[in-house]
Design a binder for these strands. Structure first.
Lengths: 146, 146
DNA sequence: CAGCATCCATTCAGATACTG
DNA sequence: CAGTATCTGAATGGATGCTG
């Protein structure tokens, strides 16, 4: 992949999000959603799918499978269903033979990418520090148990 | 938990992050770090530890275990080690009997929380849409295979 | 007190085979 | 074409017991 879709529109959205002031007290439902969202985005495939759909606009199942390198058909189906359920993606079934199903990002799905821009930028800014910390830790002989 | 540490300083940091313009071409190393970071934060415990350390300043192992509700000792040790390795946390061993180990957030660790503010705010703004989408999906009789 | 080592149940993802 | 169903190995995380 080539990273988050950093076009101008996405960046504007990311900045608008950061300008908002969140309430002092966090709604438990929001908390649960955040945890779920982060977990979803971390699941390795969601972000990749988000990205290729953002780039291509609309894709069929097989086209997606080709674009998202390494994904199994099972994971593609599963991830797309979850994204559809969360309103990130629309699934359009054309009643033809052979079947044809189109997937497209929704506004909601596109803006989720923007929400993660902050993490992306942070990583860029702090990559050196993290790497240095890791080198120091490993050189000290310490290990992380598994 | 009560949500991300949304104090003024954290918010300023989040906004500063969002104002930066990322490069057009993403460094593969940054990409790998982003994926790792998101995965780490999604692992359920890292964020919680980040939060209680942010609130309390410095805590001993057992105090952390008490503050982070539900965490097993194994997961606490493992997560703390990973955070230490990544430079998010400092671990100070006092050579006394019984042993005493203090954990404290680093600047880097604190700023990571800020990087995720965008996701938090996004979730607050879009919770209703996601819930509506899920209700519609579930009502349609569709399911997500497991 | 602050861990490490070990065992075990559950989850998960990949491969494979089959279908409307 | 766009899936579903099933099997299996691997990774996770919790519980328990032990130690300097």
């Amino acid at each position: 992949m080539t990273g988050l879709p950093f076009d101008e529109r996405t960046l504007r959205e990311a900045r608008r999000i950061a300008q908002r002031t969140p309430p002092a007290e966090t709604d438990p439902k929001v908390e649960a959603l955040v945890t779920e969202l982060i977990g979803r985005v971390a699941d390795k495939w969601t972000m990749l799918i988000l990205e290729v759909l953002h780039q291509h606009g609309e894709l069929r199942f097989t086209q997606l499978a080709r674009q998202v390198e390494g994904i199994s058909q099972k994971m593609l189906t599963q991830t797309l269903r979850q994204m559809e359920r969360d309103g990130m993606v629309t699934r359009t079934v054309h009643p033809v033979i052979p079947p044809r199903v189109d997937y497209r990002l929704t506004e909601l799905g596109a803006s989720l990418g923007a929400a993660f821009c902050g993490v992306w930028i942070w990583a860029e800014e702090n990559l050196d520090k993290v790497e240095a910390a890791r080198r120091a830790f490993d050189a000290s002989g310490a290990t992380v148990r598994r």
